[in-house]
Computed example of a mutant assay.
Amino acid sequence: MDPHLLRTFVAVAGCGSFSTAARQLGYTQSAISQHIAALESDLGTPLLHRRPVGPTEAGERLLDHAAPILLRLDAARADVLRAAAEPPGHLLLDLTPSAMTARIAHALTGIRRSMPGLDVTVRVAGRQAVLTAVATGECSFGLVDGVAAPGDPLHLLDVDTITGVAVAEEHLAVILPDAHPLARRTGLRLDDLLDARWIDAPEVAAPLPDLRTAAQSDNPAASIRYEGTDASALIALVAAGHGLVVLPAPAAAGRPGVRAVPLTTPRLVHRTELLHGRNAGSAATALVTALTSVTAAGTADGA
C-alpha cells in the first residue's frame, strides 16, 4: 500500500471533497482522482462514495488504520533525521495546557541560565497535537499531562521512537462553583458525582472517558463541551454553574467563584510526562535532568 496514496485518501475523506483535498495537498484534482482509483484498485474495493464524497464501510475501516500507519512513517523519518543532525541552539517545547507547573517553569529557567545562547520557543497545544509533533520531529520535546493511577504511565501513542519520562504527579480535585452544596466538603468520591452536570474539556481537564473508565460507569456525562486550551476560561464556566471538571489541585488556587475539593476515590493522580526522541540532543537531555531533579527535590521537601 503506497503511503502517498493513503495520505491522499485521508485528505479526501477529511475534506469531503476531491477539489479541496487537491488544494490542500498541492495536486490537481485529476491527480487526486487517480490516486484514489489506484488505491481502490490495489485493495480491490471502493473506498469513497462520490456523491456526496464520504468513506464507504471499507473506507471507514481503512481510516481506522491510516492515522497510526502514517504517524509511524513520519516518526521513523524524524528519528533518522534526529540521528543525522541536531539543529543548533534552538529548543522548541510543545506542552498541554495543564502541563506547565511552577516546578517545570523553574526547571526551564535553570536550563536557560546554564545555556545562555539557547533560543527557546514554548507552544501550547492539545494532547494529540503535542504527541504528533514529538513523534514527527516537529518539536524538540513535549510535556503531556493526563490522569493515571499513582505510579502508572500515561496511555500514549504506541510509537517506539519516542520516550516518556515522568516529571510530576499531583493530586486531583473536583472544581465546583463556590455556592455548590458540596463545595465545603473535605473530599469527594467520583461515585457521588456521576449524575452531576459536567463540562467535557478534553484538552484541559481530566478527559471524561478516563473518568468513566475509573468509575466503571457510562457517567459522568457532559452538559457542555469546551474545546479550548485556556484553563482560566474553563474555570470561569465552572464558576458560572455550567458543570464540574477534574483538574490538578493547584489549578484553581486563587480563582474567584470556585472551590477545589480533593478527589478521594478512585485513587487517581494528575501525571505529567516529558516526551522526546531517542536522539533528543544535549538541550533536551539537560531539560530531562533538570525536570526530574526539580521533581525529586520537591518530593523530598514534601511539596
Rank of each mutant, 00 (worst) to 15 (best):
M1N: 12
D2A: 13
P3I: 08
L6I: 09
R7V: 08
S19Q: 12
A21N: 10
A21M: 10
R23A: 14
G26L: 02
Y27F: 15
T28K: 14
Q29L: 00
I32K: 06
S33N: 12
H35F: 11
H35P: 03
H35M: 03
A37D: 13
A37M: 10
D42Q: 15
L43P: 07
G44W: 07
L47Q: 04
L48N: 01
H49A: 07
P55H: 04
E60N: 12
L62C: 07
L63D: 02
D64A: 14
D74A: 15
V80S: 09
R82E: 14
A83I: 00
P87H: 10
P88Y: 02
G89I: 04
G89M: 05
L92H: 14
T96N: 05
M100G: 11
M100N: 11
R103D: 15
I104V: 15
I104H: 10
A105T: 12
H106F: 11
A107T: 09
A107I: 04
T109H: 15
G110W: 07
D119F: 05
A125L: 02
G126L: 01
G126Q: 01
L131E: 12
T136P: 03
T136H: 05
T136Y: 03
C139L: 09
S140V: 03
F141D: 08
G142M: 03
G142P: 04
L143M: 12
G146A: 08
V147F: 02
H155T: 15
L156G: 09
D158M: 10
I162F: 11
V165M: 12
A166I: 01
V167L: 10
V167I: 15
E170D: 15
E170L: 05
A173I: 07
I175L: 09
I175E: 01
L176Y: 02
A183K: 02
T186S: 15
G187E: 12
L188Y: 07
L190E: 07
D192P: 00
D195L: 12
A196D: 14
W198M: 03
D200R: 02
P202Q: 09
A205M: 09
A206N: 01
A206D: 01
P209M: 06
L211Q: 06
L211V: 00
R212H: 08
R212N: 03
R212E: 01
Q216E: 13
S217N: 12
N219Y: 09
P220N: 06
P220E: 06
I224S: 11
D230G: 03
L234K: 08
A236Y: 00
A236P: 02
A240C: 08
G243M: 10
R255I: 13
V261N: 00
T264Q: 13
T265L: 11
P266W: 04
V269G: 01
H270R: 08
R271W: 05
L274C: 13
L274E: 07
L275V: 08
A280S: 15
A284G: 03
A284R: 01
T285K: 10
T292F: 07
T295H: 13
D301Y: 03
A303I: 15
A303M: 15
